[in-house]
């Protein structure tokens, strides 16, 4: 179609430096948590001054993976020996400070962002709330299994994670061939990578199933230049005569995306990486298609204005971000791009 010469990606499976950079930024993202044992459930003779635990938890991790560290702390510092003998971590479960049950199978970063957008509805953020940890309450007994949906174990969490990986694979390619093609040891390696928070171990396997945003033009600005965070990510035009990147982010059927609105619901839709006009599908277009009341299609015409903002891995992403690029660089470890929508309140 077009005769413009474009540089050819060196290999469909090589991962460009900019993709790796953003994947690493996503992977290294952490959130501050304050975990307090429900004071009514503290065993007798516990050291009550110390029942709070502070942690900077990886966004891509899961609550059950924090339990061993939390247990060690409680055993060493808070519980006496008699209590330590009877406490059963199988019965532990978490609530937010305002009494919302926290899902075992949600990535911690999603729990945090979901809390942020819920706050955006309830009250204008005051300066005192800035960079406060998310306060969680740990219950030691009587888990509400009917509402938790999954048993609170790392094994159940791993199974749910694998299910999400496969669902994302199916969304992208119409089959789970890439996931089922992994050896058992490789599949386990994905989870181990998350458990150990080891970027290389996770991506050694994940790069076989996650499409790459292969650049078709000279490399984006070098890392360290803050402007690169706001520049348009490199994109692939599937209609060029150059070797088609069949595994590229811009050639998937659909990008695995979920939209989270404050206090629910969760929306899922098919998200083609390219639009019919041949242009990449952008975040602004996606939001104005699915949430036109919050993201009016023509924000330049008063009185229509965006009244909300999308939070992806804790970042308020700009309109022109391409959906395919988000899928390759800003997805969680389970392959899903989670867009939390908060309300703008400064008016």
């Amino acid at each position: 179609m077009t005769t413009l010469a474009r540089p050819v990606p060196s290999s469909a499976f090589s991962t460009s430096a900019s993709t790796t950079l953003f994947r690493r930024l996503t992977w290294e993202g952490t959130v501050p948590l304050e975990i307090r044992v429900d004071s009514k459930e503290l065993p007798a003779n516990s050291d009550r001054g110390l029942e709070c635990y502070y942690i900077q938890a990886p966004r891509v991790s899961y609550l059950p993976l924090l339990v061993p560290e939390l247990k060690r702390f409680l055993m060493d510092v808070v519980f006496d020996e008699a209590a330590a003998r009877v406490v059963k971590e199988e019965d532990w479960w978490f609530e937010s400070e305002d009494g919302n049950l926290l899902k075992w199978h949600w990535p911690i970063g999603l729990i945090y962002d979901n809390h942020m957008i819920t706050q955006s509805v309830r009250a204008a953020p005051s300066s005192s709330q800035q960079s406060m940890p998310l306060r969680l309450v740990l219950h030691l007994a009587s888990p509400p299994t009917d509402r938790l949906l999954l048993s609170p174990s790392a094994e159940a969490c791993k199974q749910a994670f694998m299910g999400q990986m496969k669902e994302a694979d199916f969304i992208r390619w119409g089959s789970t061939k890439r996931m089922t093609g992994l050896r058992k040891a490789e599949q386990d390696g994905l989870w181990e990578g998350i458990r150990e928070h080891n970027f290389d171990e996770y991506w050694r396997v994940a790069s076989k199933v996650t499409p790459t945003a292969a650049p078709t033009r000279p490399q984006s600005p070098p890392p360290g230049n803050s402007m690169s965070l706001h520049s348009r990510p490199p994109s692939v035009d599937p209609n060029t005569g150059s070797a088609p990147d069949r595994d590229g982010a811009y050639n998937v059927r659909s990008v695995p995306v979920r939209i989270y609105l404050p206090e629910g619901p969760i929306l899922q839709a098919l998200v083609p990486p390219m639009l019919e006009d041949g242009n990449p599908h952008t975040l602004g277009q996606f939001l104005s298609t699915h949430l036109p009341l919050l993201f009016p299609p023509t924000p330049s015409d008063p009185p229509f204005q965006d009244t909300a903002y999308p939070l992806i891995q804790g970042v308020a992403a700009p309109h022109e971000t391409e959906m395919a690029w988000l899928g390759a660089c800003m997805a969680g470890a389970d392959g899903w791009v989670n867009i939390c929508v908060g309300l703008l309140r400064d008016r």
Partner: peptide, 29 residues
């Protein structure tokens, strides 16, 4: 260790999301 932590409250939102001179009211939102 703080890299990538959420700081939307402390960092300004991109201007595209904050042009609110004449938007609908909070109640409409």
């Amino acid at each position: 260790p703080m890299a990538g932590s959420p700081d939307t409250h402390t960092r300004a939102l991109p201007s595209a999301w904050t042009s609110l001179d004449s938007g609908p009211s909070m109640q409409e939102t």
